[in-house]
Each structure stands twice: as structure tokens, then as C-alpha cells.
């Protein structure tokens, strides 16, 4: 059960800006030496504010961008896309789901093609097989076969996110990077998508890296939590540890800033306002 799916050792990512004809080249350290291990079937949440490097880290884990230094191991195998080509086999292991369901689907591609594309490019399955698999996956994410021939603009945000999830699952990956998958969605839809993710995790024994800024969602879904601040990990532990006993001052600030919607806090706030 304690099989490690994903491991990062001191991952660093630098960006170089400027450095044109005039002006000196500047280095921006987006991710400063992040290490972690993630076991199969678990969810690691990466929390932080915009610009803290959490999305950059997500892109490294998904093999979109290379790391500047450090080691990334998927299923125990080290991988560095700056040096080696990404093989189809590697690609099948990791998939990503983006925040904006309106930008992540090609507006000119029918849903059937969206789902069939990964199979077409990475397997030798026939058109009929691809079609069957796509139909099955649509049912699995709570849509129906009748949606196969439709275009993305005919779907709502939540439905599109389901399609994006379906596409990510077509190659049956073991690891899914979820980059703010529910923050563009309405509360009710958010609950449905979170439930779907939980169902799928149980069914396929998936491992999630869940990138989010929303602590209430993280608290609900995560097994382990990693808090990032300006490219550094300031807090890393199990959900219970981090939420019960935050160590770093930034984590505490973050908790304090999260709106509280329980009745006691509202009562306290109103009393305070009346007194003022």
C-alpha cells in the first residue's frame, strides 16, 4: 500500500527575464528546492497564494516544463524532460486538469474527438474501440453517450470540467495533477466535481496532486498538505498536523484570513460590530 508514486528531490525552477540587448538578465526563482514523496492513492494538496510557485511546480510534475535542477521520480524512475524525450509510456502516467474549464477544451473539437485524441496518439486502438472507450468514460464522469458529438460551447462550466477529467483519465494515468480544478466553478458544481474526483480516486486508486488556494476545499480532500510561500515550502505534513497545529507564521496568517461561516464566528463578529 505504501508504494511511492511521485517523489521530488530538491526541485528548483528558475526563470530568466530580460537579458535582451540592453539591461541585465535577471533570475527569478519560482520554485526553490522542493522535496516531497507521495504514496499511491493519496492526495497531496499544494496550497499558496498566486505567484507562490505552486502552478509552476504543477507544470513540472506534469512534464510540461523541465526543472532547472533537482530530481523528479515518477514510479521510482527519474525523469528530466530537458534531457530526454517524454515517452508515450511516461505520458500515460501523469495527466493534468486545469483551472479554467473554458480554456482547456478546444472550441472546434467535438467531445468525442477530445476524448479520442489521447488514444489515437498513444495507442493502436481502432476508431470503434476509441469510440467505445470514450462513451464509457463519459458515463463514468456523469455525462452520457449523447454528449459524444457535441461541441464544448454547448456545455456548462461544471460539465466541461467533467469532460476535462474524462480526457485526463483516457490513458488511465496513475497520477493526476489538479491545478485549481474547482475554483472557477459555482459552489454547487464545486461539490459535484469534488465528489466525482473522490469517486474516481476510489475506483481507479488514483493519486492526486491538488493545487489550490482554498483551504476549506483542501481540508476536505487532502491527505497531506504542503504550504508554499514565495517558491519555498514553509509547511509540509499530514492534513491533521497542518490544520491542528500550524508551525509557520505564514500558515497561521492564511488560516486566520480564511472566512469563517460557522454560527459562532458570525455571532462574535456581530457582537463586535455592535460594540464598536
Amino acid at each position: 500500500m505504501s508504494e511511492v508514486v511521485l517523489e521530488g528531490r530538491n526541485i528548483v525552477r528558475d526563470y530568466y527575464v530580460g537579458g535582451g540587448l540592453f539591461g541585465k538578465q535577471k533570475t527569478v526563482h519560482a520554485v526553490k528546492g522542493v522535496s516531497f514523496t507521495l504514496e499511491k492513492g493519496k492526495t497531496l494538496a499544494i496550497v499558496g497564494e498566486s505567484g507562490c510557485g505552486k502552478s509552476t511546480l504543477g507544470r513540472i510534475l506534469t512534464l510540461i516544463d523541465p526543472q532547472t535542477s533537482g530530481e523528479l521520480l515518477i514510479d521510482g524512475k527519474p525523469i528530466n524532460i530537458a534531457k530526454d524525450r517524454v515517452t508515450a509510456e511516461m505520458r500515460r502516467k501523469v495527466q493534468i486538469i486545469f483551472q479554467n474549464p473554458y480554456g482547456s477544451l478546444n472550441p472546434r473539437q467535438k467531445i468525442g474527438e477530445v476524448l479520442g485524441e489521447p488514444l489515437l496518439l498513444n495507442t493502436n486502438k481502432t476508431a470503434a474501440e476509441r469510440r467505445d472507450l470514450a462513451m464509457q468514460m463519459l458515463v463514468k464522469v456523469g455525462l452520457g453517450p449523447e454528449h459524444y458529438n457535441r461541441y464544448p460551447h454547448m456545455f456548462s462550466g461544471g460539465q466541461r470540467q467533467r469532460i476535462a477529467i474524462a480526457r485526463a483519465l483516457m490513458l488511465s494515468p496513475s497520477l493526476l495533477v489538479l491545478d485549481e480544478p474547482v475554483s472557477a466553478l459555482d459552489l454547487s458544481v464545486q461539490a459535484q466535481v469534488l465528489n466525482l474526483l473522490a469517486d474516481l480516486q476510489d475506483e481507479f486508486n488514483l493519486t492526486y496532486v491538488f493545487i489550490s488556494h482554498d483551504l476549506s476545499v483542501v481540508r476536505y480532500i487532502a491527505d497531506e498538505v504542503m504550504v508554499m510561500y514565495y517558491g519555498e515550502v514553509v509547511e509540509y505534513g499530514t492534513r491533521e498536523e497542518v490544520f491542528a497545529n500550524p508551525q509557520h507564521s505564514y500558515t497561521k496568517t492564511l488560516f486566520a484570513a480564511t472566512p469563517k461561516s460557522d454560527v459562532e464566528s458570525i455571532r462574535a463578529r456581530l457582537a463586535k460590530k455592535k460594540a464598536a
Binding site: L187, S188, Q190, A191, L194, A198, S216, R219, Y220
Partner: peptide, 16 residues
């Protein structure tokens, strides 16, 4: 009840 902080049990109840 769809708020994650009000979750009871494994799954969230939804507005659906």
C-alpha cells in the same frame, strides 16, 4: 451543506 467545511461523511451533498 455544499460547503466543504460543512461536509459530513465522505461525500458532499450537492445542490443538484
Amino acid at each position: 451543506s455544499a460547503l466543504p467545511e460543512n461536509a459530513t461523511g465522505d461525500r458532499l451533498s450537492t445542490v443538484a
